[in-house]
Write a protein that binds this DNA or RNA. Structure first.
Length: 399
RNA sequence: GUGGCUGUAGCUCAAUCGGUUAGAGCACCGGUCUGUGGCACCGGGGGUUGCGGGUUCAAUUCCCGUCAGCCACCCCA
């Protein structure tokens, strides 16, 4: 006797499946509008694909085991290594830029919480072979247009956008040393959920002057102009590029969603340039999506040396948000027609009509045993069928 | 992995101080109503109170363990 799904896994009853299908079809539709094409890879991969670059810390969060061929394997926890491998294998043959998306089910063995299960479906949109900042703008525009397609406006969603290079330059101008940079990222990443004095203490421990500590604590309010005043040389060019990025986002029609915010760090991993996260304005939910540029990842995985950028958007937090806002319109499919006949009619009569209609493409349901018409009508209403058709007793052709 | 809170029917909840065969609404099934749109009325199935142990004459109620869920941490998708 099984009581339910494993912890962190979901049973998709028709209502839940309809919601999932609604989310995924919307993802697919908007990605298509931006001329991204769909691909997929194996749900099971060699364990090494994830341990090689990500480090061993991730291993504890993998669903991994030894298969019957004594291979160490893992259920995929993310799509990036797979797509990187696929692109690298055909790097020379693929038309650049490569605009691909996928909606894999991903797995991670972690303690579950709201918005965070052990399995989820995640839209992955990636662009390979494009170093232009226009590509960064396209990428964020897809993510935001998806929000719009779900009915989420700039009043609901904010895209907080930063740039690794700008953050680094800004922190350097405040006196953060190269050695203290990662630690500073860590403090900034946790700024919102850490008491102010604790953060201040950690920053002071990095050797920052009191004024610099204040500046970091208030980094969320720092504008691009603030940054432009203190950076020089190559960094100034990066700042100008970011300004271009913002102009492109305006041109693409999603500018209202975007906010410059240096406190967005995106973990400590492989991002090399512009990064972003999408949040609901109320702050009630976890990040809805996140991504950015990771130009060195393909090369470091031993593949082609192609610039790359991408984002992920999971179905769990998004689904919670849509339900909370009354924007989850999905309902299970209903039959086109409910066929009824007098209780005295043989069932074969109804079946022949059902077969004809089904042959013509209609979705047809009927009572599996003779019943009174009122009973059939009640059943038809409960089923939600679009149309109630009663076969006449006379000629058998009527609708 | 750590800590806190919580587990009664498919769902939302009730059950006095520990006291008889654990109740209700919704949902589901059956029936009545030949007419009003997912109506009304009648009836029915479904719970070893998450599971295991302990205390007690007696446990849904008190204690311990365990599993699960929620929240925070950790970490990120």
């Amino acid at each position: 006797m099984f009581k339910g799904a494993l912890p962190g896994f979901r049973d998709f009853y028709p209502q839940e499946l309809a919601e999932r299908a609604y989310i995924m079809s919307t993802w697919r539709e908007v990605a298509r509008r931006y001329a991204f094409v769909e691909y997929d890879g194996p749900p099971l991969e060699p364990l090494e694909l994830y341990t090689r670059k990500s480090g061993d810390e991730i291993v504890g969060q993998l669903y991994s085991f030894v298969d019957k061929g004594e291979r160490e394997v893992a259920l995929r926890p993310e799509m990036t290594p797979t797509v990187a491998r696929m692109v690298a294998a055909r790097a020379n043959a693929l038309r650049k830029p490569v605009r691909w998306f996928s909606m894999p089910q991903l797995f991670r063995y972690e303690r579950q919480q709201k918005g965070r299960l052990r399995e989820h479906y995640q839209l992955n949109v990636d662009l390979f072979g494009a170093s232009e900042v226009a590509a960064d703008a396209e990428l964020l525009a897809v993510a935001l247009d998806i929000m719009r397609a779900f009915g989420l406006t700039p009043d609901d969603i904010v895209a907080r956008v930063s740039d690794r290079r700008i953050l680094t330059a800004y922190l350097a101008s405040l006196g953060v040393t190269a050695g203290g940079m990662d630690a500073a990222y860590g403090v900034i990443d946790k700024l919102e959920r850490t008491p102010r004095d604790v953060s201040a203490e950690r920053l002071a421990a990095l050797g920052l002057a009191p004024s610099a500590v204040e500046a970091v604590l208030g980094i969320q309010a720092a504008t691009l102009a603030d940054v432009a005043r203190v950076v020089t040389g190559a960094d100034a060019a990066v700042v100008e590029e970011f300004a271009q990025y913002q102009r492109y986002l305006e041109a693409l029609g999603v500018g209202a969603y975007v906010r410059f915010d240096l406190s967005i760090v995106r973990g400590l991993a492989y991002y090399t340039g512009i990064v972003f996260e999408l949040f609901d304005r109320s702050g009630e939910f976890r990040a809805v999506a996140g991504g950015g540029r990771y130009d060195t990842l393909l090369a470091s995985l031993g593949g082609a040396d192609l610039p790359a950028l991408g984002f992920g958007m999971g179905d769990v937090v998004l689904g919670e948000l849509l339900r909370a806002r009354g924007l989850m319109k999905a309902v299970p499919e209903r039959a086109d027609v409910w066929l009824a006949a007098a209780e005295t009619e043989p069932l074969e009569r109804v079946m022949r009509e059902a077969a004809a209609r089904r042959g013509a493409g209609q979705s047809v349901e009927y009572a599996l045993r003779p019943q009174s018409l009122s009973k059939q009508k009640k059943a038809a209403q409960a089923s939600g069928a679009q149309e109630f058709v009663t076969l006449s007793t006379d000629d058998g052709r009527n609708g």
